[in-house]
Design a protein around this nucleic acid. Structure first.
Length: 270
DNA sequence: CGACTTTGACCCGCGC
DNA sequence: GCGCGGGTCAAAGTCG
């Protein structure tokens, strides 16, 4: 790790915009400048830039006011021992960087589907190592294509480390079922009021303990923040007296469209 | 043999 | 203008 290893920091979103395509990522992802080129469109051709937001900390939510228009992002925190939670899709790790905010490295995954440009960022919370922060970017243009190699996809997500997968799907479906009235282009984050009964009893205590900071990974414009804030999250950091479940999704921020794509049909049900 | 993970280097945007 | 830091690519290595 040449540079990144040394430090990290927080401030800038930096990077060559992954796939600054907004909703037009039809390109086949050119060799190397693929992403870079795409970024260019947003760097100079996209007037409607957006703030970083990739920051786990709300502080950077509204830095300059704009950066580059990227694909919608959705972050959720999951209490799990495993970093990479199964969600029914196949991901290929393409990078890892150390972040200053946390002693844990951040991993970058990409959907293995060549036609799918969805990316996933996984990092552990510096406050609570048991909490994994997963950030999805983009929308799957295919269904759970994880069966390509029989490695198991939705089926896996159905039970495996499953708590997380199920909980996640549960949350997603919950949001989809109860679509809020928010502007299409905008993304909001919601707190998960309940979890899968099999995974984790919806006890107020548990939920409370699970309440964590939801990062709005979009421009704060017109966005409504949940009643609980990062500060509240910290308050909820106190772990419950009893042993926590294998994995539990704590918070979610999704887009209707993405949910529909991300959540494996088999897992989504409810 | 193919797919995936790991690791180093490079690029780009932002802040100072 | 420089430095910092994040994000991505590509080559090599490992595993199934």
């Amino acid at each position: 790790m040449g540079r990144g290893d040394g430090g990290a920091g927080a401030g800038s979103d930096g990077g060559r915009g992954g796939d600054g395509g907004g909703e037009e990522e039809e390109e086949e992802a050119p060799a190397r400048s693929g992403d870079g080129a795409a970024a260019s469109s947003s760097s100079s051709g996209e007037p409607g830039k957006q703030p970083p937001a990739a920051e786990p900390a709300p502080v950077a939510t509204v830095k300059k006011g704009q950066k580059r228009a990227r694909q919608p992002r959705f972050a959720f925190m999951t209490k799990s021992e495993i970093d990479h939670l199964e969600d029914g899709y196949r991901w290929r790790k393409y990078g890892q960087k150390a972040v200053k905010n946390s002693p844990f490295p951040r991993s970058y995954y990409r959907c293995t589907n060549s036609k799918c440009t969805v990316k996933k960022r996984v990092e552990r919370s510096s406050d609570d190592p048991s909490v994994v922060i997963t950030t999805y970017e983009g929308q799957h243009c295919h269904h759970t294509a994880s069966f390509q190699r029989g490695t198991g996809g939705a089926a896996v997500a159905a039970h495996i480390h499953g708590a997380a997968a199920v909980a996640l799907a549960e949350q997603m479906s919950a949001f989809v079922s109860a679509p809020p009235q928010l502007p299409q282009p905008q993304r909001l984050l919601y707190s998960l009021p309940r979890l899968h009964p099999q995974v984790n009893p919806p006890s107020s205590e548990t939920v409370n303990s699970m309440s964590t900071s939801l990062q709005e990974l979009n421009n704060g414009e017109g966005l409504q923040r949940p009643s609980y804030s990062p500060q509240a999250a910290e308050a909820g950091h106190r772990r419950p007296p009893r042993p926590p479940p294998p994995s539990v999704a704590t918070a979610v921020s999704f887009d209707k469209g993405l949910l529909d794509d991300i959540v494996p049909p088999g897992v989504r049900l409810g």
